[in-house]
Design a protein around this nucleic acid. Structure first.
Lengths: 230, 230
DNA sequence: GCCCGGAATTGACCCACGTTAAGGAGCGCT
DNA sequence: AGCGCTCCTTAACGTGGGTCAATTCCGGGC
């Protein structure tokens, strides 16, 4: 459980760390910790003071919000190789705007915000990388807002599936859902019952087959047509 | 119609320009243009290549998305003093993720992205200001996603009103809607008819009075209680 | 192989909100 | 004053998807 076991080139695969000098990376590493979470364990909670941002090495993390009534909205499902919560260090108050919980046993690198801010002060290139990462996320959020406001449940699911397709998807392709269906449902802002019904409809239409967490798309272009443009 | 009529201190009131040296500000200014839009005129359209970002001096700008079917979702209503579209210069593709249209006759300063990027390369402080601005917007978008996913129309309206209250609002306060009600409705992702009904309900409860575009909140704490936490 | 518990499905019902349609209110223009 | 906008409101009706309540499915432990 030592951060030293994480090789440099794995860290550098993170866009926001890719441009660092050996010396800078060493400083980042010195202030970083390896974190292991059991299934269901929380990494941080909404409103908590943020001292770190993260890279997921193994497992799956769910970022979500709770309503006062206890309803949950999954904002994003993090997969290995992704970083998250880098933007929080620039927010006034520096409080996490979401909660983070491990969906399965997970392993993460936790980076120290103040050390990273110090490095940003020395490295405009890294600033640019951070800004690029934040702008991507911003656009993703705007897309999500549009989806919630202008698309019905079926359209949101279809577009989600299209987004989950591998790059090299040909005529047909297989998708492995990154989480149980009830979590996917919350990510899409529908009830599990509704997700189940919509998947069933798409099966009836012959567009997909569902086998547990695996979805086979039989005719990608047809699904694309079905989903409109997005 | 000359950019020179805009005083330096007005430009510096923009957070992302506040830290510039006189020389840097002069360069920004040299590459900036003043833009005037008539009511209903478009500043840019979704998908268009972005060469500039903007500060609104006068008027009101609506940022929105259209669905393929022509339904409109207003993402944000810009007011004088605000800047927007700064994040686009960092996105791959550099294409505006929304459309921008003047709700009334408007006057803006259009800044040149490439000149500003050059200045960012020289000024880490300005990078930090940009990152702070982007993180605020990111949080705002996450809040919006939560609102759409977890709150009903009434709650969204109440929280919108609470957000529009002046800082120094005491027991009661007056709000002037920044746009016609149908635009506000789209901002809140409800139909105009529904907005009208909900406003009526809140009147019946004695919480507010509506007079055209002016809404008087009679009991701010009561409204806050009604709205839950957010 | 059997049991158990959470996840997923299915059906019946319901409701918040959208839709459609028909006024009404304010306001600039002639 | 009267016309013709656009914006807004009101009412009647329809529906997508939420809610509730049973099952059924499935994977892990023994």
């Amino acid at each position: 459980m030592d951060i030293r076991k994480v090789p440099d080139d794995e860290l550098r695969r993170l866009p926001v760390l890719a441009g660092l000098s050996d010396e800078q990376l060493a400083r980042v590493r010195r202030a970083a910790r390896l974190v292991e979470l059991a299934e269901g364990e929380h990494l941080f909670e909404h409103g908590q003071r943020a001292e770190r941002f993260f890279m997921l090495r193994e497992g799956r993390i769910k970022l979500y919000r709770l309503s006062p009534e206890g309803d949950e909205k999954v904002i994003e499902i993090i997969r290995p190789g992704q970083s998250f919560a880098e933007a929080v260090m620039f927010m006034e108050g520096k409080r996490y705007p979401v909660s983070a919980q491990a969906l399965v046993r997970s392993e993460l690198v936790a980076f120290d915000n103040s050390v990273f801010l110090q490095i940003l002060r020395e490295s405009v290139e890294t600033c640019f990388r951070v800004m690029a990462a934040m702008s991507m996320r911003l656009r993703a959020r705007v897309n999500e807002i549009e989806a919630l406001a202008l698309q019905n449940a079926t359209l949101r699911l279809v577009n989600y599936l299209l987004g989950e397709l591998p790059e090299d998807a040909g005529e047909s392709a297989e998708i492995r859902l990154p989480a149980p269906k009830n979590v996917i449902a919350s990510r899409l802002s529908v009830q599990p019952e509704t997700l189940s019904r919509i998947l069933h409809q798409l099966c009836d239409k012959g567009l997909i087959t569902v086998q547990g967490r695996t979805i086979t798309v039989h005719d990608v272009p047809a699904l694309r047509r079905y989903g409109g443009i997005a």
